[in-house]
Structure formats: C-alpha cells, structure tokens
Design a binder for these strands. Structure first.
Length: 870
RNA sequence: GCGGACGUGGCGAAACUGGUAGACGCAAGGGACUUAAAAUCCCUCGACUUCGGUCAUACGGGUUCGAGUCCCGUCGUCCGCACCA
C-alpha cells in the first residue's frame, strides 16, 4: 500500500479551523467538573514570537491538553503584557502611535500563536493596555489606597537618564537600567509606593507552603526578602548633635560584639551627616562625592572604604568610660536599619578595612575554638565564624547566641533619656515597591492634585482615567506632563480646577494580577470573586527563571493586597510553578568580526570536524559558542519559518524532546529533521495499521506471545507516559514514545501476525495517537480520523492502562557475584526469596564460580536483583 | 566575598526510594533498495582486550553485599545576591 506523505501545512490549518469552529477550547466557568488552571507567562507584544515562546507555550499546551483528556475543566488563557517602553521607543523612532504599534504586534503574534495549534481559550484574551483592563487596575489602586497599601513619599530614586524614568531597585542590574542599560543616577523625587513591606514576614514564611515551586526560586526569594534579627541600640552623644539629637540610634545583628566597638558610622544621607555638612565644606564635598558615585557603580569598582570624622563622640552603652568617634562613611546605606552602625572591626570585614585605613583600634571579642586568648590577633581578615566571647566584661565565656541575648536583655531594661536603650527588631532587605514611572504608555495613577485639598483619589464613577490619544513624542521625558489639556480636571473633592497625576504605573503592576482577571475577563469589577475563588490558585504556572524574583514576588504581594480589599480570597496565586530553560543556538562569526545568522552560512563536516563557510562568498566562518538566541548575535531561528517548512507539531515535538524542560535546549537543524522524520514515521505506521487491521477486530482468548508482549508494552508505555506528563518530564515521555513506535513497527513489519495481531496493533496505534496528541495535536487528529474515528481526539478521554498488563508473569533478574553482574535468572513473579536463592545457586556460572564452596551470603531483592557474596 | 545548582559516550541525555550504567534521539560508519539521489529499511557505535575479561558516571577517599545516586575533601562549570551592619 502507499501512503501519501504527511502534509503538515494543509493538515494543521484544517484542524485549527475545526477546533475554532467548534469552540473546543472555550472554557465555561459553570462547568461542574473539577477545575484545572494552567497558565504560561503572557508575552510582551514585541512584534514576533520567538523560540522561547514556542517552548514555553508548547509545555503549557501539553499540560492543558492532557488534563482536559483526564476529564478536568481546564482554563488555559492567553493575553498580552502590553504596556511598556518599547512602544514609546517605536513611537519616537517610527512616528507610530504606541497604541497602534502595540495592537498591530498583538495581531501578528496572535496569528503566530494560533499557527502553533495551542489549545487556548481565545475568548478570554485581553491586553493590559485595553482600557477595560486598566480601568479595573485603577479601581484596584484606589482600593489599595483606601486600604492603606499605597502611599507617597519623597525618596532617593534610581533615575534612568536614557529612558528618563524612575526604576525600582529590582530593575537596576549592576548599576544600570534593566532596559536601557544606562548608568543609573540618584535623584530625590516624590513617588508612589505599594507597601510590600507590610507582608515581608508573610511573603517569607509562606514560601514554606509552596512545595510545588522549584527550591531554587524559593531560595532566591528568601534571600531577596532578606530577614535579619537584631537590636536597635541608642548611643548617648557626649555632646548633643547639631540636629538636637542627644543619642544616635543604630541597628546591629551582632550585639554580642559590642565590647569590640571601635567607632560609629553614619550614612552620608543620614540627617546628622546632612546637617553637619551645612557648616562643614569638607564633609559636604565628601557626601556629594558619595552621591555621584552612586550605590551601584561602587559595587562594580569595589570602591575603597572612606570616611570623615565628624568630631562627634558617643558613650559606649555598656561602659560609659569608653568614648567612640562618629564617622560619616561611604559604605553605610541610609535605607537599611537606621542608616547608622557601630563598627566592630575585629569581626566585620568592612569595618576592619575602614579601621585599618584610619588607624582605629581593632579589639577581638570573639575567640575561635582552640585559640589562645593571649595571642589571638586579627590580621587583614575579620573573624566572622563561631567562637566564645572574651575581652567583654560580663559577657566573657558566653557563646555568640548567649551574648546576643544577654546584651539585648540588659539594654532593653536600661533606659536612656527615659526610654529603653535598645529594642529587638527584625529587619528586612525587601523595600516598598516604588511604582511611579514618568512615562506615557502605562496605566495612569488615578489621583488628582488640588491646591486646596492636596492629593485626592479620583472618584470611582469617573474611572477610567484614560490615556489621551493625541500625544507628542518629539521630546524626551513624560509626554503626559506636557499635554496641553489632559492634566486639567476638577478636584473630585472640592470641584475646583486641579491637575491630574502624570505618573503611570510600573508595568509589573499589570502582570501582578492578570492571572486573576482571566477567571472573569469581562467583569465590571477587577474580579468576579466567585469565579476567582473557583479557579485560583493557578494549578500550573510556567515561565522563565528570569522572573524568579520580580514578577513572582509582586504577584504574591498583589494577591495578598487583593485579598485585603476583598477582590480575592487567597494569599498564594501560583500553586505549582515551573521554570523552563532557554532555547540556545550556535553562533557564527565572519573573519571581519560580524555575527552571521544560521541562514547565511553553510556547514560541512570532514573527518569529524565541523566547519562553516559563508553561503554566498564562501569565506571561512568561525563556529562560536552556543548561546541564548538573541538578535544581537543573530543566532535566532524564526518559529514561523520552522512552522512553514515542518509544521507546528514538529517544532513542538523537538522543543520538548531533547532536554529536560528546566534545562536549556540546543536548537539544531538535525534535531528538527529528526522530529520531522518521526512525524512521517508515525503517519506511515498509522496508515499501515488503519489499512491492515479491522477496527472491529476482537481479542481472541489465546493470543500470540509477540502480540501479548506488544500489548504489555502498550499499557506499560501508557502508564509511564502519563506519569511523565504529570511530572512535566516531557523529554522522558517522548523517549518512551519513540521506544513504543519501535516496538509497534517490529510487530507491524513481522512476516506473519500471530493470533490477536489485528487487535493488538489497533490498540497500540490508537493509544499511540492519544499519547502523542498533547504534543502533536494536528498529527493526532489526522491519524485519529484515519483510524476511523468521527470524534476529535482533542475531546477524547485519556486511555486507562490495564493493570493486568502492567506486570509480567516471569521476571528476568540480573545475578551478581560480589556486586558484579555475571548473568540473569528468569523467575516467576510469585517466586519466594528462598526459591530464587535456590534457583540462583543452581545456575551454571554461579556453580562454576563457587566451585563447591558455600556462599557467604545471598541477597535477593524481589523484582530487582540477586547478589551472591563469596 | 556569600548562597545555590550541576559535572555520565563524539553530542543532547536516561537510570523511580542505592540494585543490569549509557534507554531514546542526534551525529558517524557499514550494508540493502535505486541508473543516481532523496526518502526508507537493516547492522555497528564508551575505552582497552591475550576475546576469558578488565576499566569506565570530573578527581581522591569513605559507608555498603552493591554507589552515577549517600558522606567527606579537591577541581571545574553555571546561576542568584552583592557594602543589608
């Protein structure tokens, strides 16, 4: 018989239309079946999808299709993270409106995603720049404001001089803007903040409950939140500071080293430093220098520790005979703790570096185990390990933990100026989330500035505060600020003319609750709480590791905040999280140093050495390292090209087949061709089975051994593949399916089919189609039809493995002698340990080795192995 | 510097709670079919070997009847954080 070659292009378009016409993947909220919410991180509409999207969405689609077959009511939506800078950049460069640019990109990318055959409920689609979406976001903002979760404050901010906007700490990477790459400056501005710090403790503690999150991500968040327990201690000034303060409050996690104190340190931004600088030009110059350098560039250059003695002196809280100098030092951060420290150089490297530079005393107070107190000395390295306290009066002999406790207890109960001298405090590295952005293409912050009433929230009935369409991008800075009329609005409180806020929200706000919006995307409130309660948390969330901190932490905060204002009733949005690896590709460079795309070169191989030449000029090309696909290195592959030439199924199959999903996958032309060959192979095999077996073939009572073996393989494979998909082991599932196809082919190609052959092959073919369906849905539908079904495999229940076929009657067990495999023994499944031992000792090769001796020991692990110890 | 993960053939990788190391795929080599090519099918494919075996999961030790898997140390690669007191 002849089978036509599988025509992916024609077949895929056809089935996509069937699914769409029949609303196969539209999800109803009132469907009574158990719900399953699978979500992939929604894309930024940059213009075209890339291979990373293909991989991400292929994984989610496998889960969605599998769970649907398992009988769940599956929610699998898609939308667009559509606000952000690139749209404004495009507007400036190409004179196209950000809105038009964005929606055009969305249209293109929607088409590309549809060509992938994803089982998405497109009826729930939205973009975060849709007025309907950001209206609800403004509503949420106002609820947060009312609930005390939003505030304004003047703060030193990270200013990106290229994008001309403020960046969150998290958006500053190595001192540069995460998007522009420009060196970030420090500026003082009044900004809007979300009170993420209200939830520091809870965000940290609840990480423990996220047992279906990667350990790595939980650890990264834990470190980011950065909880530390310590003591706030006030040191009395010998003479009052110029600010009028009579004491200096510091935060320390090492009160046990208090007797090792050598000096005090103030941040250059500390109020006392600032006040002193007014009359001290040297100090002023120093502070200015610190600000110029900025917190970040310092890190790059590992700036030297520097400081200036203020002349102020404080008294040691445990021994007022000791006076300590107060320095302004460049390494002390204003926004952690109190912006002031006491320095113990012997046990802190930063303090030690500083003390050595300025000749300040270094007194060790923690003695390492087995060290001699008389001779123990600190060199260039601070001692930060465990030990026992010495040189410390009443603390001598205590452990570090005991000494911390003793100091805290003593200073808590002593008073200074009528207040306790110290208090225990838990500090977090996590700051409040600054959300103000001085941009046009974002969600406007719905408040009004009134000369009489101050900052007034816009009234709910006046929402949305809509972005103006007529906008000018000729100049840098915020276009909303210079719009002729948009700012003008009556004050919601007094009705007099007032001005709108021109800051828009950080785009991370948009993505912090979209998963909740999908549960009722057209609701006239941010959420329909009933639908949200039914669907959330997301059962399986899939996305890139690059969002391990920002997006995921913000979403966790937002869920809590929404719970507080009654929009949701849970804390944790994502029950299961999976972070997939990147798609990487070889790089190619011509001899003049420019990058070349895979399409521009020709590869060849001689004697096992691969080489490349320029496809047109024939000039030699250097094959470079394998790197993440990026436009700058030109090592990208356009998914559309692949889908056009091989089909979506091939692309999806290859994306999932080679590497474990959390690891990077290398895109190779050979690999895609392998996947393509497999598509054809399945197609031929199904065609042959369909042509040579009767759908109504019965299962005879006695079946041929080879057929029984095939049936066993079928059901064992089904069992294993199901398990692999459940655990997201797509590469394992695919390897098993390859094996399975090899096994079916063997029977299908056998010169004669034994009894039950038709039934066995039908069964194998049918289950094969069902197993490939989540990964290669189009090929599966087409094959399903060829096998004679009138239904859709997309709407067919997942098959059940027959338990009787999962266990073998006889088991082939390896036999080891002294831990080395020497042969096998075939035993019945029910054989007892003793019987197996006896049978083993009768084996020729065992007898030969034993040579009449009795073995020391025979270890029989049922179903596993026999080990004879001689 | 601190924290974490990982290290298996020419390559991507399998190996569930310690139990036959290298499944499956890619590449490579040989063969069949063909005028030829493509496609397809079959065979070989960790190293050494006196063809009995021996050695092999980064390296060195240890625990165990048995270690890729557990423990200690060394080296290497990757990732996150980075003056957080």
């Amino acid at each position: 018989m002849t089978t036509e070659r599988y025509n992916a292009r024609e077949v895929e378009a056809r089935w996509q239309k069937v699914w769409e016409d029949k609303d196969v993947f539209v999800t109803q909220n009132d469907d009574p079946r158990q719900k399953y919410y699978v979500l992939e991180m929604f894309p930024y509409p940059s213009g075209r999808i890339h291979m990373g999207h293909v991989r991400n969405y292929a994984m989610g689609d496998v889960v969605a299709r599998y769970k649907r077959a398992k009988g769940f009511n599956v929610l699998h939506p898609m939308g667009w993270d559509a606000f952000g800078m690139p749209a404004e950049n495009a507007a400036m460069q190409n004179k196209v409106h950000p809105r038009d640019w964005t929606y055009e990109n969305i249209a293109t990318m929607r088409g590309q995603l549809k060509s992938m055959g994803l089982s998405l409920d497109w009826s729930r689609e939205f973009a975060t720049c849709d007025v309907e979406y950001y209206t609800q976001q403004q509503r949420l903002f106002l609820k947060f404001l009312e609930g005390g979760l939003v505030y304004r404050k003047k703060s030193k901010v990270n200013w990106d001089p290229v994008d001309m906007t403020v960046l969150a700490n998290e958006q500053v990477i190595d001192g540069r803007g995460w998007r522009s790459g420009a060196l970030v400056e420090q500026r003082d501005l009044t900004q809007w903040f979300f009170k993420t710090s209200d939830y520091s403790e809870d965000l940290l503690e609840a990480l423990e409950t996220l047992d279906r999150w990667p350990e790595k991500v939980r650890l990264m968040q834990k470190n980011w939140i950065g909880r530390s327990e310590g003591l706030r201690v006030r040191f009395a000034f010998s003479e009052a500071a110029p600010t009028g303060d009579t004491s200096l409050e510091i935060f320390t996690t090492r009160p046990d080293t208090l007797f090792g104190a050598s000096f005090m340190g103030l941040s250059p931004d500390h109020p006392i430093s600032v006040k002193l600088a007014e009359t001290n030009p040297t100090l002023k110059a120093f502070i200015d220098e610190c600000r110029r350098v900025g917190t970040s560039e310092e890190a790059i250059e590992k700036a030297e520790k520097k400081g200036i003695d203020t002349g102020l002196r404080v008294k040691h809280p445990l021994d007022d005979g000791i006076e300590l100098p107060v320095y302004v030092a460049n390494f002390i951060l204003m926004d952690y703790g109190t912006g002031a420290i006491f320095a113990c150089p012997a046990h802190d490297q930063r303090d030690l570096d500083f003390a050595r530079k300025y000749g300040l005393p270094v007194k060790p107070v923690v003695l390492p185990k087995d060290a001699d107190p008389a001779s123990f000395d600190i060199g260039d390295e601070a001692f930060t390990d465990d030990g026992s306290i010495f040189n410390s009066g009443f603390l001598n002999g205590l452990s570090i933990a005991e000494a911390k406790e003793a100091v805290a207890a003593k200073l808590e109960s002593s008073t200074l100026d009528g207040h306790p001298q110290a208090s225990r405090q838990v500090n977090f590295r996590l700051r409040d989330w600054g959300i103000s952005r001085q941009r046009y293409w974002g969600c406007p912050i719905p408040v009004v500035h009134c000369d009489g009433c101050g900052v007034v929230p816009e009234k709910d009935e006046n929402l949305p505060v809509e972005l103006p369409s007529d906008i000018d991008f000729e100049k840098p800075g915020n276009p909303l600020d210079r719009h002729p009329t948009w700012r003008d609005t009556p004050c919601p409180a007094c009705g007099k003319p007032a001005k709108r806020e021109t800051d828009t929200m950080d785009t991370f706000v948009d993505s912090s609750w979209y998963f909740a919006r999908f549960t009722s995307p057209r609701a006239d409130q941010p959420t329909d709480p009933a639908a949200a309660t039914d669907w959330l948390p997301v059962d399986q969330y899939i996305g890139g590791i690059e969002h391990a901190i920002l997006h995921l932490l913000y979403s966790r905060f937002f869920t809590r905040a929404m719970q507080k204002v009654g929009a949701l009733n849970l804390k944790e949005p994502f029950k299961g999280l999976f972070t997939q690896g990147m798609v990487v590709h070889e790089t190619y460079k011509s001899d003049d140093g420019t990058w070349l795309s895979p399409a521009e070169i020709t590869l060849s191989e001689t004697d096992g050495t691969r080489s490349a030449v320029h496809a047109v000029t024939g000039k030699p090309v250097t094959i470079g390292s394998i790197e993440k696909m990026s436009k700058s290195k030109k090592n990208t592959i356009d998914p559309t090209d692949i889908i056009d030439s091989y089909g979506a199924d091939t692309a999806r199959w290859f994306m999932l087949s080679d590497s474990p999903p959390d690891r990077d996958v290398i895109w190779t032309e050979e690999g895609v061709q392998g996947a393509w060959r497999f598509v054809q192979r399945v197609w031929r095999l199904i065609g042959e089975i369909a042509a040579t077996t009767d759908p109504k073939a019965a299962l005879p009572a006695d079946i041929d051994d080879q057929v029984l073996e095939l049936r066993r393989t079928t059901h064992k494979t089904l069992q294993a593949v199901s398990n692999d998909i459940e655990t997201l082991g797509f590469n394992r599932a695919i390897a098993r399916i390859y094996e399975f196809v090899n096994a079916i082919s063997k029977v299908a190609n056998a010169s004669e089919r034994g009894a039950g052959g038709e039934f066995g092959l039908r069964e194998a073919g049918t289950i094969l189609v069902q197993m490939i369906a989540p990964v290669m849905p189009h090929l599966a539908e087409e094959s399903w039809k060829v096998l004679g079904h009138r239904t859709l495999v997309s709407e067919t229940a997942w098959p059940e493995a027959d338990p009787d076929l999962l266990v073998d009657d006889t088991i082939l067990m390896p036999v080891q002698i002294n831990g080395k495999k020497r042969g096998d023994i075939s035993v019945s499944r029910e054989a007892s340990k003793d019987a197996i031992e006896a049978a083993t000792l009768e084996l020729d090769f065992v007898k030969k080795t034993l040579d009449g001796q009795t073995p020391k020991k025979v270890i029989v692990v049922p179903q596993r192995i026999v080990n004879v110890v001689v």
